[in-house]
Design a protein around this nucleic acid. Structure first.
Lengths: 191, 191
DNA sequence: AGCTGAAACTTGACAGTGTCAAGATTGAGG
DNA sequence: CCTCAATCTTGACACTGTCAAGTTTCAGCT
């Protein structure tokens, strides 16, 4: 009762229970009031930490993206070289969304992938998973002694990412049978 | 006044104004009541034609998908052979969403791509754009005298579609600069 | 120690939403 | 002319995001 007006770390708790609720009932059934209630807090308490419902959702996206990025990192750590690392990371990318189909629509909805960066026009380079791809790609160029112009590199990167991202999109389509066993890496990448 | 209770073809009008509203203010700002009002009809009139808001949205998706499919068809009509047709269609696929960025999130949101087919588990083969890819792909195999198992063909198709779909996804990311000129076909496909 | 002001939270209200039940209107077929 | 189903209206309900105003708490200053 003493701390009725001090919830210690409500901000983080809102984010965490928000994720839990989305996992349980999906983003479309998440309400600000519901999250607040689940935290034993009044329905407008979140407004002390987020100016908007969208701002909370953005915070959640950032949090999920961090976990996602971690998984990609660990996936390519054991790789012998950059080429194998790229494959491993691509498959981890696909696997992540195949395991959490709801996250794809949630993270890329309205295509606001860089939720934590406010201004209007942001560069892909600011998207952590893309940064990982980029590092590995540059390592790949170096290891194989390949020289490419900046423009060529940009296009290559978008193609690599595009393939992986597209496969992930297809891999997590709900209620749609693609005839593909997405658990089998040999089916997916292996370019 | 006589036809206060007969709007001739309200169902289609709801779908059309629904599309218009989405184009103007986005899906997230579309309300059933708003669509009804825009059709000069009471707020529950739509319930005579759609049991749900979702059912109206599904009808709209179907309608948009039809236009999308038409564009893909015309894109590959002039192609000299199946290989060129595949490239043309892929670029048209990407171009469509680059021109209408809102449609990507709208159509593939919750990954319910086959909106007009109700039962739970549907096959990709029922998705019209995919059918076009499949036809062209089979033509490509025949023209080049290539023999592949059914499984190999399925994987090939998902890969082709995955690449194109992923590029389209990246091409229409809002507020994200990919450093790519998506209007220039030479940047995108050309596998 | 007491005051002050900002931060965190509550309470109460508002308009807008999807949905449903009940009633009104219409036209087609017996 | 009657009936009945389809179509649309009216009125209500609970729920939503948001805001304004009030309450509690605590840190920092005097």
């Amino acid at each position: 009762m003493s701390d009725k007006y001090h919830h210690e770390n409500l901000r983080q708790e809102l984010i965490d229970t928000g994720i839990r609720i989305i996992n349980e009932v999906g983003e479309e059934n998440l309400s600000l009031r519901g999250v607040a209630l689940a935290c034993n807090v009044s329905h407008s308490a979140p407004y002390a930490h987020f100016k908007d419902k969208e701002e909370l959702l953005d915070a959640i996206k950032t949090s999920v993206t961090e976990r996602f990025t971690e998984e990609l990192k660990t996936a390519c750590e054991g790789a012998a070289n950059a080429d194998e690392g790229l494959i491993a990371m691509g498959n981890a990318y696909i696997a992540f969304f195949h395991r959490n189909p709801d996250y794809y629509a949630f993270l890329f909805n309205k295509q606001k992938i860089v939720a934590h960066l406010q201004p209007d026009k942001k560069h892909v380079d600011d998207y952590p998973p893309f940064q990982l791809f980029k590092e590995l790609y540059k390592k790949h160029l170096k290891e194989n002694n390949i020289k490419k112009s900046k423009k060529e590199q940009e296009i290559d990167l978008i193609k690599i990412w595009g393939i992986v991202h597209g496969m992930a999109s297809l891999a997590c389509m709900k209620g749609v049978d693609t005839s593909i066993d997405w658990e089998d890496p040999s089916n997916t990448l292996v370019i």
